[in-house]
């Protein structure tokens, strides 16, 4: 279970997170929605220590993330980055097996490669892809490789940062289905950042909307359509007019 308690984070004069309170239950797939620049990615990064909150606490299974030994803690997580964030200096299989080739989870090279190929198969990629470099792959394939890397070490918690950004609708559907399948199959706790409502429909058990640095609304996916919150309704229906100010 992940608990965000009163999280504040500013970058200079830009107050990104302004008292975020949120609970993600064990085994739950929580999707965070919200406009661009509302701090959705920052929220995820505070859990992983990539961004340090100015104040507040983040508890993972009751332990404060700032007090935990980093290496062991991070091995419980997998993350799919918005742009894939694949290491372009190494072939696909080494990207996928990165965590399995060093540190506490280190395996012999042959075994690590086998696991990488198995994970690539799991995300629908042929074994031949294993020896190609990320720059030789399409955007959709890169996302799949990134997904394979996120699940390679069998994490307990997976973060998905904009999993469908930059993909065509069909490939977005494929990635959404894959994400849902993996979350259910592995029984992991998942947090997904998106503003793609198709992703929300496919992936989410629960949805939280971040607006002006706070959780504006949080509830079950089924309740999203009749949340009664004008901010949520404007966002879900993609209307320019409403309480959320837009620059024109």
């Amino acid at each position: 279970m992940i608990i965000f308690e009163n999280i504040y984070k500013s970058f200079g004069e830009n107050h990104v997170l302004h008292g975020v309170n949120l609970t993600v239950e064990h085994g739950e797939s929580m999707v965070i929605i919200g406009g661009s620049g509302t701090g959705k990615s920052v929220l995820i990064k505070t859990v992983l220590g990539l961004v340090e909150p100015d104040s507040g606490r983040i508890l993972v299974d009751g332990e404060d993330v700032t007090q935990i030994k980093r290496d062991a803690f991070l091995s419980r997580f997998g993350m799919l980055f918005q742009g894939g964030a694949l290491f372009d200096s190494m072939p696909v299989w080494q990207n996928v097996a990165f965590r399995l080739q060093r540190g506490a989870l280190k395996r012999p090279a042959g075994e690590a490669r086998e696991i990488a190929i198995e994970k690539l198969r799991r995300v629908g990629l042929a074994p031949e892809v294993a020896d190609r470099f990320p720059a030789e792959l399409s955007g959709g394939m890169q996302k799949r490789v990134s997904l394979a890397r996120a699940i390679a070490a069998e994490p307990e918690i997976i973060f998905f940062d904009e999993p469908t950004t930059g993909l065509d609708p069909i490939m977005s559907g494929v990635i959404n289905e894959l994400t849902r399948e993996i979350v259910v199959e592995m029984g992991v706790t998942a947090m997904t950042i998106t503003h793609d409502m198709t992703s929300v429909d496919t992936i989410a058990d629960k949805v939280a909307m971040l607006h002006r640095g706070r959780i504006q609304w949080c509830g079950a996916r089924a309740d999203l359509a009749h949340s009664g919150d004008p901010h949520v309704e404007q966002f879900v229906n993609g209307r320019a007019e409403g309480p959320i100010e837009t620059l024109r």
Binding site: L50, L74, Q82, A85, L86, D88, F98
Partner: peptide, 16 residues
């Protein structure tokens, strides 16, 4: 370039 494309962040999340 690694920083801009979040590869540095990815390294950290991979316990490196």
């Amino acid at each position: 370039t690694m920083k801009v494309t979040e590869q540095i962040d990815a390294l950290v999340t991979l316990s490196t």
